[in-house]
């Protein structure tokens, strides 16, 4: 489904990702773990299409070349990124934003726009999923939201957009244990045979709630180790020290 081959990303001349390879099959959940500064968020933004990145390599989703697409076209192709820091947009109504987003991808796919009544149903189901109250939809997008509310809003958007590939960037950061439970159960409810997920996290804690099929360790712009969920447990116990040693060597070699 998602095929990443030798992906390199530089920002302002500084290389961040240095040849990342990843294969994600349909319905699979992959966790990407790594220390601060290893390039986890850059990988997420490279998939979503952030401007200002120098990107090389190959990224395809069901054969379609993602790197050639604008961010909005990637969304239409089925990519959804949950932001680590969801953006506050004062003055833009959350409900209107969601409906505009959904209708935009439907139009891009040559589908009819959703009716107001049908949309309300979709939105209601999504709100139930993340245990949000009705007034959530009438507020401005993320404006004045608590950290937990912002993350729940990301999962709400994911539930409405129904992506093929969800990339969740540090969805657990800044969450207390109750919010984490709500967000994780929302994500779990959205797992399915046709939906793949990449869950990016610094801590193993989230993976207690969202059990990944594969775990990858990202250090200094490369995946240095892959395994099943027991790898996360190992990291929890031992930290990244084992891999950082190797990283230091690599850095030394390239300098």
């Amino acid at each position: 489904m998602l095929h990443v081959d030798d992906l390199t990303v530089s920002i302002g001349g500084t290389p961040i990702l240095k040849g990342l390879d990843l294969e994600v099959g349909p319905g699979e959940v992959h966790a990407i773990m790594g220390p601060n500064g290893s390039g986890k968020s850059t990988f997420a933004h490279a998939l979503a299409g952030r401007e200002g990145y120098d990107v090389e390599g190959t990224v395809t989703l069901d054969g379609a070349d993602l790197l050639a697409m604008e961010p909005e076209d990637r969304a239409a192709a089925g990519v959804f990124m949950g932001f680590q820091y969801p953006v506050e947009i004062p003055g833009v109504n959350n409900m209107y934003f969601l409906r505009t987003a959904l209708n935009s991808v439907r139009r891009s796919r040559g589908e009819d726009e959703i009716s107001a009544r049908e949309f309300l149903k979709v939105a209601q189901e999504a709100m139930d999923l993340v245990e949000m109250k009705q007034d959530f939809l009438n507020r401005s997008v993320n404006a004045g939201f608590s950290g937990g509310e912002k993350k729940r809003n990301e999962i709400l958007q994911m539930a409405v957009m129904q992506p093929k590939l969800a990339v969740l960037d540090e969805t657990d950061s800044g969450l207390d244990i109750d919010a984490l439970r709500v967000v994780a159960s929302g994500v779990n409810a959205l797992r399915g045979p046709e939906r793949s997920m990449i869950v990016i996290t610094h801590y193993q804690r989230l993976l207690d709630y969202i059990k990944p099929d594969y775990v990858h360790v990202l250090v200094n712009g490369r995946i240095v180790e892959s395994g099943d969920h027991t790898l996360a447990l190992h990291l929890e116990e031992k930290g990244y020290a084992d891999f950082l040693g190797e990283d230091a060597e690599l850095t030394g070699a390239s300098a």
């Binding site: 909005e72 959804f80 953006v87 004062p90 935009s104």
Partner: peptide
């Protein structure tokens, strides 16, 4: 705001429409 524009575009909203949303959001306040 470029970041806000990117956020909206990542949700499938075309660049011109995303700009319009942000402008109207600013004005509507």
């Amino acid at each position: 705001d470029d970041t806000a524009l990117y956020y909206l575009r990542s949700r499938g909203i075309r660049k011109d429409e995303a700009s319009r949303l942000l402008i109207n959001g600013f004005a509507d306040q």
